[in-house]
Design a protein around this nucleic acid. Sequence first.
RNA 1: GCGCCCGUAGCUCAAUUGGAUAGAGCGUCUGGCUACGGACCAGAAGGUUUGGGGUUCAAAUCCCUACGGGCGUACCA
Length: 600
Amino acid sequence: MNSFQCLDEFTVFLREEFPQAKLPENWNITLEKCPPNMNGDLTINCFRFAKDLRCSPDKTADKALEFFRRHRDVAAAEKIKAFVNITLAPGAVYRDSVARPDSLLAASRLPDTETKRVLIEYSAPNTNKPQHLGHVRNNTLGMSLTALLARVGHDVIQINLVNDRGIHICKSMLAYARFGNGVTPESSGIKGDHLVGDFYVKYNSALKEQLDELRAAKPELHNESDEKLFLETEIGQATRKMLQDWEDGDEEVIALWKKMNSWVLAGFDQTYKRMGIRFDHTYLESETYLLGKDIIADGLARGVFQRREDGAVTIDLGKMGTKVVLRSDGTSVYITQDIGTTLKKYSDYEPDEQIWVVGDEQILHFKMLFEIMKKLGYPWADDLHHLSYGMVNLPSGKMKSREGTVVDADDLFDEMVHLAGEACKERYGDSVSPDEIAGRAEIIGMGALKFMLLKFNPKTTMLFDPESSVKFEGDTGPYVQYACARINSIERKAAERGLKFATDAVNWELLSAEEEKALAVTAFFYPRALQLAAEKMDCSTLVDYLLELAKAFNRFYRECPVLAADSEELACARMALCHAIREILTDGLKTLTIQVPEAM
RNA sequence: GCGCCCGUAGCUCAAUUGGAUAGAGCGUCUGGCUACGGACCAGAAGGUUUGGGGUUCAAAUCCCUACGGGCGUACCA
């Protein structure tokens, strides 16, 4: 990790001053940026660590003040309560931050002893309908978490587990068999997952019709739930029959299933490609759904599970209650296969940690799963983690596939990219080729969408308002990309004028403006922002950081002309500063799986 | 009923996990290029952090309580 020299020396100083505290080897003070309304660059908050020194916060702050006032890198220091605010000498700021952008970027890598192999499972779509905004949030969280963890040095394996079998898959199959007339993606020109999704919708309206008829014919059933009446309908029975035929290996049903699944999976491939997702492996539930039964049998023999009177196998999970892990007819439930696939993923990859990116309505399910894995005695069961995230709501309320109130993923991509393209044309429509515009629009539109989704803390239930969420101004991805584009533009113009800087020969002392120093101080915190985000498994803190850095840059840009600086030496110093900032912003966006256009 | 999560500016969200005067963006209102790109910058207004009690040097954050919302509580996935 990077540090300011004066802070490293301060830590040494504290060890010498407080030998009785016996500070551990890796002990370090947490560094904070000085709040903007206070006088200083950095803040040492003595409330935080005074107890480690067995000293009062106030006296600790006195010691700190004394140390920093004497230090050669410190221009001024003041104490307020137990906070010590430090104003660094300009030379020290640049020397320890932006003067070596490569080492600043490298500083976020964890030591080898702390890096792990992490298996992350996300997306997990059903093959009966196309993906919607909820999946897009899941996908974005999963792919960005992957990039973030990899960025700090972990070895990350990305897994998808596609739910390609079950009664819900049979629904769109049955509707296709009845109403499809042999239509295909090719014959209709409709993307495969959308075509299948259309039949899922058709199925649900047909089912609703039959339910209405049933209730009309038998008023006593009026208040029963749809689920209860499902098998009372003709179409419900036919669906159940189709599932049984599938499980019995009926050739015709299997052929239909294979055909429709291949359409959907081809559609998903396009969606993933557009988002920039590449899974290391995709498990199909049709191949894994029987896993877990042997583990249950083994656990039953060892007394981990109990057989109930009716034949069902259960486990007592204390406060969480009793969980059925095998039905009385011997078939699997959801958690049975999860037990099996968890073990399979472990034996396939031997990760140090497994992460599931799954919505927060499944918190209890995963608590139970992890507890069961512990009771089964797997030593790695403590390293299973559910990254839960909140739902995406619309101003009109919840998204529901069956009610058609979803924001479709592909449509949303098109809309974002279209709007970004319009904005590009407005600016440079005449001077730039349509192909170039299209390329920029893709990067800007997709970047804006991902950035918007990642700006929220994963656990918050977020609201997506199409009217106001689709923006390219303010706290957005394009705002950060724009800062990069401005720097690129400066570099192009500098090259035209033959202006170049040599990293070793930059005179950083010339950068004396407030905006320049503030920019460098913010840049200094980049490795910390990365590590903190990785530790919390939360990209939203990185998003906030990048906005802060881009903002600091735009202030600098306004106040400090680069190419028109008073001297060539100053111009070079400012160019070097810009270069470092662009490297950080680009690296940060890349860690959010967002690209940067050369110009915009 | 029980369990988990949440309630912060008009709106959408933050707050380094208990730290300074609770911050951003949008929206509203004022200003700013003969300039390296205005997808920008500067400023103003906007808050009893849902109400009430407590814990301590310090509470949006922890505890109790009332109210309001979400989710879960399947031999569904």
